[in-house]
Amino acid sequence: MTNPSQSLIIKMVSRTLAAFIQVFGLYVIIHGHYSPGGGFQGGALLAAGVLLIRMTEGREASQPTLATAIATPLASLGAVIFAGLGVVILFFGGNYMDYGAVPVPGMEPAMIRYYGILIVEVGIGLAVMTGLVSIFDDMVRTNRQSGPDLGKGGLS
């Protein structure tokens, strides 16, 4: 799976499809307040878009979409967005994760909670997307020591 696919059809279809999957993933994250969806589902869709390119174009060619080296730091960034929001609220005198305690002028607490949930969902989406990509990259590594009789293609 680290080598590019030989079939032109698979390449073209996955290139076209990946963009739509990514856009749909963003839609699912951002529209999660009004319809079924949210950070977890949208993050999984974004990861599916990245992994589709990674499986068909090979690892080297797909690095610009999401580099292997920055996947884990981005996952921690997602967790930090989530936890950091809770810490920010502590400075305003609220309880941990009690978004309504942040005083934003001209906004009632319900709307502040609305935007708090949005920030949290973006953090979840980032963490889930990069977490899944990182797990995939760890499993399908280049130049793995080949085990016994894996067949012609092998695992890697």
Binding site: H33, Y96, E121
Partner: peptide, 21 residues
């Protein structure tokens, strides 16, 4: 409480946000 129609999102992101963390 949160001006959000989707109850599952509110429970996930607000009421039980510590769980989600």
């Amino acid at each position: 409480d949160a001006a959000t129609p989707n109850m599952v999102t509110v429970v996930l992101g607000d009421y039980r946000s510590f769980d989600t963390l």
